[in-house]
Structures are given as C-alpha cells and as structure tokens.
Design a protein around this nucleic acid. Structure first.
Length: 221
DNA sequence: AACTCGGGGCA
DNA sequence: TGCCCAGAGTT
C-alpha cells in the first residue's frame, strides 16, 4: 500500500474521531496499569464503573495487599475474569514493592515481566502514562487494520504491530492507536460494520466485499 | 494454535 | 437465549 493511501486512511479516521483518547479511568501510571489489567475481555465502560470506587479505596500497592483476596474479588466482581484478575493484581503489587520500590516501571521490558501484563498492556502504559510512542494491537486494531488492508489477513498480532509502525510516523503512533480503537469500536464494528456510511469504503477491500455481498445475519427462519 | 477464565451488554 | 468483549498464561 502506498504511503499516500495510508495517509488518506489516517486522515479520514482522524476526521471521524478528532477527540479519540484513552477511555480508561485513571490519574497515574499505577491506576492505568490496574485499569488495563482489568479491561481484558470486557469494555472500558464496564471497567470504569468498577474503578471509580476501586481507586477511592485502593491508592497504593500496599492497599491491595492489605485485604484478603476474597475481598478484592468482591470489589471487582462486576467485571469478567475477576478471580484471575484479583490474583494478578495482588501478585503485581507484591512484585512492584519487591522489585520496583512500589512504582510502575517505565521500561517496556520491565513492564511485560509483571504478572498479568503482556505486550498489549505494556504498550498502553508506556504510551498513555509515560509518553512513549506505541501502538497497542488489541482486537479492534487488529480487525480494522486487516479490513483496511494495513495488514494482511493472516498476520499475527505482532506482525500487525510491526506493519503499522512501519507505515505510521513514529510521533503519530499513540494517537493513531486511539483513533483505530474508536474507529473499530464505534464504526468499523466486529458485528455490524457501518460500511454503507463509511467514507473509506471505496478504498477498503473488506468494505467493497461486504457491500457487494452483505453478511447474512443469522435469522431463525 | 488452542484453550481457559467469566460477568455484562446487546441483538 | 446466544454471542462477543480495548488479553494473558499455560499446554
């Protein structure tokens, strides 16, 4: 794909979502790390409902370790995977205290060593909390990148990340990440993508395919 | 590469 | 009801 076409895609999406940003409730790197960890397999909106109260009760790693696991599970019960997540939070806090003086490390390679923190979470933390350009490839970014042809249909998550970094100027990585998220979440949705109202449909391989042959919705006859 | 965890939102 | 969600760890 030509750099001109990539630029057109980026600019169009920027116009659609001029105020794209990180929607996770947080006010410091530690809270952001907790919020991203909690967000796995559920929406940010759901996470924020929990963290508003959670962050009032728990300010530091010590606070999370001061309560029994069952109490923390109860406090995050409203989101999915809460048993694993509660355990992850406490072991994360223990490690932060043991190895990092209770602070969230700024280096990507240190972040991914933390329990419950993978490559995607580390990218979100460095970009949103520490100002390091990064593109975190989640399900939205992966889906829209493949639909738009910014990545190949069979690329792994890591390959998608590399292709995006190659095609997008470094100082636009973080904002592009957020715009692709918004685009995927509110427009180029997994189930019912708004192709007929999409300014990119003419240049989108997947969009053209879908417009010609709309996906049949499952109907119970 | 496939599987598991898991309650909430939405059609 | 059934299916998916801004993942990561294990096998």
């Amino acid at each position: 794909m030509t750099s001109k076409k990539v630029r057109h895609i980026l600019d169009t999406i920027a116009g659609m979502f001029p105020d794209a940003h990180c929607e996770l409730n947080h006010s410091n790197p530690f809270e952001l790390t907790i919020a991203v960890l909690l967000s796995a397999q559920c929406t940010d909106e759901t996470v924020n409902k929990v963290t508003v109260d959670l962050f009032r009760k728990y300010k530091t790693p010590d606070d999370y370790l001061a309560v029994p696991l069952e109490e923390l599970e109860q406090d995050i019960r409203r989101i999915g995977l809460f048993r694993n997540k509660a355990k992850n939070i406490q072991s994360l806090c223990r490690l932060l205290l043991d190895k990092h003086g209770g602070q969230v490390p700024e280096k990507h390679e240190e972040l991914v060593e933390l329990p419950g923190v993978g490559r995607k979470t580390a990218n979100v933390v460095v970009s949103n909390a520490f100002g390091v350009p990064a593109i975190a490839v989640d399900t939205h970014v992966e889906r829209v990148s493949k639909r738009l042809g910014l990545a190949g249909p069979d690329d792994t998550v890591l390959q998608v990340e590399h292709k995006l970094m190659k095609q997008v100027p470094r100082d636009e990585w973080t904002i592009t990440h957020h715009r692709l998220i918004f685009f995927g979440r509110y427009h180029c949705k997994a189930q019912n993508p708004q192709c007929s109202a999409c300014p990119l449909v003419d240049r989108c391989p997947e969009g053209k395919r879908r417009m010609k042959m709309p996906i049949k919705r499952k109907s119970n006859k």
